[in-house]
Design a protein around this nucleic acid. Structure first.
Ligand SMILES: [Mn+2]
Ligand SMILES: [Mn+2]
Ligand SMILES: [Zn+2]
Ligand SMILES: [Zn+2]
Lengths: 161, 161
DNA sequence: TCGAAATTGAGAATCAATCTCAAAATGAAA
DNA sequence: TTTCATTTTGAGATTGATTCTCAATTTCGA
């Protein structure tokens, strides 16, 4: 049937648009570097470090500096388009935050793979705990570290990232 | 009545003893510096940074170096007598781990106070989540950030630490 | 007491992240 | 288009916590 044009913009396109709005709303400027970084970041999924992103970006434009990637990821985070994650003992990792629910993580300490989960019941219990302490929660961190299925079975799993 | 001698050693005394055992078990040596650091650390409660501990230790012995405090806290952690906590955006903090259950934390982002809680139901749900993913959890991190009662009520609360 | 082995303090090194600054790019107004 | 105030950039310096290095000192069992 295919009567109508495609409805859903790609994540990268949506991000570009929302970032443009955010940027112009505060008198900032669009740049070639920023566009390339944003394009590269949203063209994939996962939890990416600045180093990893820089590597990919550099492959497309050798002149881009690390500071610019750091700065751009900070902007995306402030604009609510990416979230920064600080897992145990590594660099900050960023993930896209468009069309995503809040979620928490399972991190395999052997292969480095990161798995995601949502658990409404846990969230409720957290709220209750906070309430009991007269505490207003703004954000939280729940991370489960251990071995993923593959690593527990002793399979040869490549260390990720 | 008071017939028998006191039963419960102080935390500091218990720590000294268990550390001595751990140390001699692996051919290490006792030192004046280590004793002072351990004594100082266990003579109080709370979540202490190396800087804070160093300051207290230095007040008693001006010659002790920062590296030694770092090394000693690492030993205490490996011996299971202290636990290292890595809260958001700060230095590592250590807390005594003797006669203590596992617990998680509420951290006030305004005054810096840290509150503790235990919630068996949350722990169970975490285990279930992990199981559903075929994951074997070795440890986890659950931290709730926000405003404590005093800070939410706009009281003048001193920034801790 | 002796001496191999562990420990120490000071400063150098590391590492991620931020800052500095001169040069380049952007974009709104003319 | 040209102008030009403002923003952005890349390189390298800096920061801050932690670890490392190494010569000098301390510990403790033989
Ligand atoms: Mn995620
Ligand atoms: Mn605690
Ligand atoms: Zn794994
Ligand atoms: Zn508070």
């Amino acid at each position: 049937m295919k009567r109508t044009a495609p409805r859903k913009p790609t994540p990268a396109a949506a991000a570009r648009e929302r970032l443009a709005a955010w940027i112009s709303a505060r008198g900032l400027k669009t740049t070639r570097q920023r566009d390339l970084i944003v394009e590269t970041f949203f063209s994939q999924s996962g939890h990416l470090s600045v180093d990893e992103l820089l590597e990919q970006v550099t492959a497309r434009d050798r002149t881009i500096g690390a500071a610019t990637v750091y700065r751009t990821m900070k902007i995306l985070t402030e604009a609510g388009l990416a979230s920064a994650r600080h897992f145990e003992g590594g660099q900050t990792r960023y993930e896209a935050a468009i069309d995503r629910h809040h979620h928490d993580h399972l991190i395999c300490t052997s292969c480095g793979n990161i798995f995601e989960f949502e658990n409404e019941r846990i969230e409720e219990l957290q709220d209750r705990v906070a309430e009991e302490h007269g505490f207003t929660v703004t954000h939280h961190k729940l991370e489960l570290y251990g071995l993923c299925r593959a690593c527990r079975q002793g399979q040869q799993v490549h260390r990720q990232r």
